[in-house]
């Protein structure tokens, strides 16, 4: 295979380069948000520590495990399509979507708990950041699921093959980014004090 040397040390990451430019932009937003959280906390340490204790860390743990597992399932989906196994790829994608659903359900339960307690963006700085950050991430989970669902639909039609499966890798890259961001968000907002 002529492209073997290229495959060993490719110049570009898997998936469409355009999604990577988008991922960089997304990472930049989250980085600014995380840093803003950390530096605002500096001036309100007591407040942040106090209200961080009110969060449901069991729910956050379940969600972290769900996203990591979802990411792993997507890795399996990509591995399957690289062997040309469309149907297996589809099954792993559906499993990943299931993990996404689990995340959304758990997170929604957390939100409904907060809202019924009358907490909103203006309650205090901690909740402002907590709600903004997690909700922004929540929207990204939905966005990632929409992308994965689109990829799954095409996979079901047999739209991908050993030679042409950039679409699967593109969707996978975005989904991993959603996971990556949460892996920082979880300790920063729920645990570190």
């Amino acid at each position: 295979m002529a492209t073997l040397a290229q495959q060993d040390h490719p110049k570009y990451p898997p998936g469409d380069l355009a999604i990577w430019i988008f991922i960089l932009a997304e990472l930049a937003v989250f980085a600014i948000f995380f840093a803003s959280y950390a530096f605002t906390r500096m001036n309100h340490v007591e407040l942040f520590n106090q209200f961080q204790q009110q969060l449901d860390r069991d729910a956050a743990l379940i969600n972290t495990l769900a996203l990591i597992t979802g990411s792993y399932f997507v890795v399996r989906a990509v591995a399957a399509i690289r062997e040309g196994a469309s149907q297996i790829c589809l099954r792993w994608l559906l499993a990943a979507l299931g993990m996404g659903c689990l995340f959304l359900v758990v997170k929604s339960a957390e939100y409904s708990h907060h809202f019924s307690a009358g907490i909103n963006l203006s309650t205090n700085s901690f909740y402002m950041f907590y709600l903004s950050l997690t909700f922004f991430h929540f929207m990204h989970v939905i966005m990632g699921m929409v992308i994965l669902a689109a990829v799954a639909l095409k996979a079901r039609r047999g739209g991908y093959s050993i030679e042409d499966h950039t679409g699967v890798e593109t969707g996978a890259a975005y989904w991993h980014m959603v996971d990556l961001v949460w892996l920082i968000l979880f300790p920063l907002v729920y645990v570190m004090h």
């Binding site: 040390h9 490719p10 570009y12 898997p14 990577w20 991993h176 996971d179």
Partner: peptide, 19 residues
């Protein structure tokens, strides 16, 4: 996640590094 799930580990050059 970046190196192995996203597949950046074997990439050479600019795109190896962003994450």
């Amino acid at each position: 996640i970046g190196a192995y799930f996203m597949g950046l580990n074997p990439v050479q050059g600019f795109w190896r590094w962003p994450v």
